[in-house]
Each structure stands twice: as structure tokens, then as C-alpha cells.
């Protein structure tokens, strides 16, 4: 349980939703969410490092179990990318999909760690007050990912179609080349360009944030006594099992959307 005094549902939830911050300058923008950064960097380095260790010794003969697992993962992602992206996917798109899937999945999976036990560990083992363990429940992470993909889509659009081709597409599609339609086309494309990263990032953020909140709400059953604790634990286990699906599904959806956006950038309309 949280060590805060004067425990109320509001303070309990607020405690769990407060990021560990480090200020690096003046103003509210120049702030780092240390917890988000450390967790995501740790998970990214460990997961990709492990994959790299396996891949470095990859044999074309009979693979070991670990290599077989990594290959399974790779081929699963490669299959998904193959159906959507019709260029040379091995150069960029497929590795990006692998990165996103592995990383986002692990970031999401942090939700499985029991929130109060982890808070206690963070506080008493590492001396960190206010430490949020799920980086994808931080809107900065999901926006960072979505905007990176967004920038990549613009980059590839211009790279594939040329700057002129991209601008022509902005004003001439989807409704037609008629000059009267240009403002409408541009407006439509602007809405699309704004809505893509928003929906892309907020979908993941919303799901993970909501998952976290529900764990907290279930955790609050513990304040009603032994029976409530037991009830909350059973419900928490149920939600955790359901959450396995959400964690994988959201990582997969985020990856697929990234692939779809990158493919769309490669194709002219």
C-alpha cells in the first residue's frame, strides 16, 4: 500500500498517476518523466539486446529454441507487413514493425506488475517516490511513437513522390484535380494528417491508462476489509487475464497502424 498519510481514493489514484519528474530547465515543457524514460529505455535495451544476442549467433542450420522463438516472432511480423506493404519491406518497414511490436508489448506488459507492490518496491528498495511503471500509460510515450511514425510517413511520401508530387497529392486528392476542389482537398488532407497521429497515439494511451485505472479501482477494494481485499484480488486477477489480450492486441494494433501509414506513404493515390 501507499505510504502516504491521509489515504483517500483520490490521493491513492493521484499517487499512482504522478510521474517522477526531473526538471531540466525553466517552464513546464522542460521536464522529464524519469520513470517513463528509465522504464522504456531499460525495456528497449534489454529486449532488443536479447534479440540481438540471439541474432548475432543465428545459424542457418538447425536453430536453437531461443532462435526459433525469435524467428517465429520475426516471421509473424514479416507476414503481417507482407500483406500490407508492397515494397522492399526488409530495408526499413519490417524492422520498424518488429521494434514497435516488441517494445510496445513490453511497455504495455508492465501493467501486469502489481501496482501497489511495485510502488512499495520502487519506494523502499530504490527510494523513488511516485514512480509509474507503465510507460505507454504516459501520453508522452505514445505521442513520441506516433509522431515519429508520422514524421516518417511525411519523409517517405516526399522521398517516394518527390516534394512536388507530395504537394500535388495534398491538393488534388482525394476529390480531384479541379482547382475549385483544391481547398477542400487540402482541408481533408490536413484533417487526415492531424487525426492520424492523434488516433494512433491516443488509442494506445487510452487503453493502457484505462487498464491502469481499473487496476487501481480494484485495488481500492482492499480498503473495505478482508472480504473486500479477497474480492478485489479475484477481480484483479480476472482483469489481468483479460488485460493480457489488451496488451498484446494494442501492441499489435499500434504496429499494424504504423505499417499501414508507412505503406500509404509509399503509394500514390
Amino acid at each position: 500500500m501507499s505510504s502516504e498519510t491521509g489515504l483517500s481514493p483520490t490521493s491513492y489514484i493521484q499517487h499512482h498517476l504522478t510521474n517522477h519528474t526531473t526538471s531540466i530547465g525553466d517552464g513546464s515543457f522542460w521536464v522529464l518523466h524519469t520513470d517513463t524514460l528509465v522504464m522504456s529505455l531499460l525495456l528497449g535495451v534489454v529486449s532488443l539486446g536479447l534479440i540481438w544476442l540471439v541474432v548475432r549467433k543465428a545459424t542457418s542450420g538447425v536453430p536453437g529454441k531461443t532462435q526459433a522463438f525469435v524467428e517465429l516472432l520475426m516471421e509473424f511480423i514479416d507476414d503481417q507487413v507482407k500483406t500490407t506493404f508492397h515494397g522492399n519491406r526488409h530495408v526499413f518497414v519490417a524492422p520498424v514493425a518488429l521494434t514497435i511490436f516488441v517494445w510496445v508489448f513490453l511497455l504495455n506488459a508492465m501493467d501486469f506488475l502489481p501496482i501497489d507492490i511495485m510502488a512499495w518496491i520502487y519506494e523502499h528498495v530504490f527510494g523513488l517516490h511516485n514512480w509509474r511503471g507503465v510507460p505507454t500509460a504516459d501520453v508522452n510515450t505514445t505521442f513520441a511513437l506516433a509522431l515519429s511514425i508520422w514524421i516518417l510517413t511525411i519523409y517517405f511520401s516526399i522521398k517516394v513522390k518527390g516534394l512536388g508530387g507530395w504537394i500535388v497529392e495534398l491538393v488534388c486528392s482525394p476529390f480531384g484535380k479541379n482547382p475549385l476542389l483544391w481547398p477542400l482537398n487540402l482541408l481533408f488532407n490536413m484533417i487526415e494528417y492531424i487525426s492520424k497521429p492523434l488516433s494512433h497515439s491516443l488509442r494506445l494511451f487510452g487503453n493502457m491508462y484505462a487498464g491502469e485505472i481499473i487496476f487501481m479501482l480494484l485495488g481500492m477494494w482492499a480498503s473495505t476489509g478482508v472480504a473486500g481485499t479477497f474480492f478485489g484480488a479475484v477481480l484483479g486477477a480476472g482483469w489481468a487475464i483479460f488485460h493480457i489480450l489488451i496488451v498484446i492486441l494494442q501492441a499489435f494494433i499500434f504496429m499494424m497502424l504504423s505499417v499501414v501509414y508507412l505503406s500509404m506513404a509509399h503509394e500514390s493515390h
Binding site: W30, L32, L37
Partner: peptide
Amino acid sequence: INFTLVSQA
């Protein structure tokens, strides 16, 4: 939204 976004990117 803060600088975390940039560093995450």
C-alpha cells in the same frame, strides 16, 4: 506534454 516526448522519440 513535456520534453519526455522528445527524449522518447
